[in-house]
């Protein structure tokens, strides 16, 4: 095994504080994490423990106060804001607890727009790719449905297809089943696991559900700003 192969994401000693009023809240203090294509990571932690903050740091949405972050060997601190945004679009897919679908677009358009924003593929290929992804998440018969016409589980599946549209190498999922009932959550979780396996994507799953967390080979808990095995 070659050791020069860079990690998809390499985080070293990430720290982050927020100033709220005149008080400084230390959310993360010295987090290390590295992800390869085979990584299946779960992160648990109490509400407010900094899970979302960590994902945002990994996605380059927020900047750490201290520490280093590499995507595929690129130190992202060195990138301009514009480059960083484009690089994120290429490398990282994200899903959120509340889906964040665009209400005026139907399912197909919600997936397509991710591809159009990045413009990595040609128009005809985009449409085929979006339809294939929606098929993969089991929504090939709901292409024209608007988000308000879809159930929570279906919306999250659309959001998943959207996150995968630009063939990212890492999927960051922030409590993706947090708004779903048990049966639907299981269904969505299975689809997430199947697709990351099939597409060979690293997965970071933030969840409150101990069953889902335990299914991951690599499990962490975030406590007092530190990531514990």
């Amino acid at each position: 095994m070659s050791e020069v192969q860079p990690q998809l994401i390499e985080a070293r000693d990430l720290s982050k504080s927020f100033v709220s009023g005149n008080r400084e809240i230390r959310v993360l203090s010295g987090v290390d994490l590295s992800l390869s294509a085979a990584s299946r990571v779960s992160i648990r932690g109490e509400s407010g423990s900094g899970k979302t903050t960590l994902l945002n740091l990994l996605a380059g949405i927020e900047r750490p106060d201290r520490g280093e972050l590499f995507w595929d060997g690129i130190p992202i601190q060195s990138l301009s804001a514009a480059r960083l945004t484009r690089e994120r679009g290429r490398q990282i897919g994200m899903v959120f607890q509340s889906y964040y679908l665009i209400p005026e677009l139907n399912a197909l358009e919600n997936v397509l727009i991710a591809g159009q924003i990045m413009g990595l593929q040609r128009k005809r290929e985009l449409r085929a790719a979006a339809e294939a992804l929606l098929d993969e998440v089991g929504l090939s018969d709901r292409l024209k449905s608007r988000p308000e016409q879809l159930s929570g589980g279906e919306r999250q599946r659309v959001a998943l297809a959207r996150a995968l549209m630009n063939r990212p190498r890492v999927l960051l999922a922030d409590e993706p089943t947090g708004n779903l009932d048990e049966v639907t959550a299981r269904r969505v979780m299975d689809i997430i696991l199947q697709t990351v396996d099939r597409q060979d994507i690293a997965l970071v799953l933030v969840t409150h559900n101990p069953n889902f967390a335990n299914e991951m080979p690599e499990r962490y808990t975030l406590r007092e700003g530190v990531l514990e095995k």
Partner: peptide, 15 residues
């Protein structure tokens, strides 16, 4: 939130 998400998905600043 949707606007933030467009940015997360790689939308350029002027778009």
């Amino acid at each position: 939130r949707e606007i933030g998400l467009l940015n997360v998905m790689g939308a350029r600043r002027r778009e």
